[in-house]
């Protein structure tokens, strides 16, 4: 487990323990102020230390959270038994490993260096339900690969160069339900045509200006 995840996981116990220790230290300190059976300033040292340690423990999670660098590698998570893979905004360039993850159910890679060739790596993705290639260099040619994905229900193409003709090639897809087309040149007519193809379909498109 990486340090950030560990910090998040331990944050509640640390904050609760720290605050509790600081509170106990506070009451101990006040008690010592009024009951001077111990010699005066020296008797206050132990409760003061407890307060400081408590505050340090309670503030550790946010401080660590700020110091630990954020991992910009691929985010590969199993969610209810399904592989959800996110590469959007990552700091790597090599997409070749995608060919070895054909069990992926959700793939998010809204990056400008994704091309039709990257999408071609997904040919064997028989379980892929959601694909986000917004902001990528995908064209209508890439949609030829995408339309053969047998389980696809949701496709994100925001701010790409796909056209009305490309969207029409998706019309007969058996499972595709939602297409995101914001920031594209796709017309309302083409979007409506897709929606009319099967009941329950939706297309997200910008309002005409």
């Amino acid at each position: 487990m990486d340090l950030e995840a560990l910090n998040v996981k331990l944050s509640y116990p640390l904050i609760i323990t720290g605050v509790a220790a600081a509170l106990i230290g506070f009451f101990w300190f006040v008690g010592r102020l009024f009951n001077r059976s111990k010699p005066f300033p020296r008797g206050l040292v132990a409760p003061a230390v407890l307060i400081l340690v408590g505050l340090a423990v309670a503030s550790a999670p946010p401080v660590i959270g700020k110091l630990v660098p954020i991992d910009l590698g691929p985010r590969d998570k199993m969610v209810e038994g399904e592989r959800h893979l996110t590469l959007t905004g990552w700091d790597r360039k090599d997409y070749a490993f995608l060919a070895s993850k054909p069990d992926t159910v959700v793939l998010q890679m809204a990056n400008t260096d994704v091309t039709d060739a990257t999408v071609a790596l997904l040919a064997e993705y028989s379980k892929l339900r959601e694909l986000d290639v917004s902001d990528s260099k995908i064209t209508d040619a890439g949609l030829e690969t995408i339309k053969k994905l047998p389980a696809l229900t949701t496709l994100y193409l925001n701010r790409t160069a796909v056209s009305d003709a490309g969207v029409r090639t998706l019309a007969d897809h058996a499972t595709l339900k939602v297409i995101h087309l914001r920031g594209t040149a796709v017309t309302k007519e083409a979007a409506d045509q897709f929606k009319a193809g099967k009941p329950g379909r939706r297309a997200l498109i910008d309002e005409p200006k």
Binding site: I70, L72, V79, E80, H84, T86, T88, V106, Q108, A110
Partner: peptide, 26 residues
């Protein structure tokens, strides 16, 4: 409760779509 995190589960996937470096108010 203002630690910056990405949540677990389906919500985690939805918010990670903002980028693997995006973090939100827990």
């Amino acid at each position: 409760n203002n630690l910056l995190v990405l949540p677990e589960g389906r919500a985690g996937t939805d918010f990670a779509a903002a980028g693997v470096g995006a973090r939100f108010h827990r």
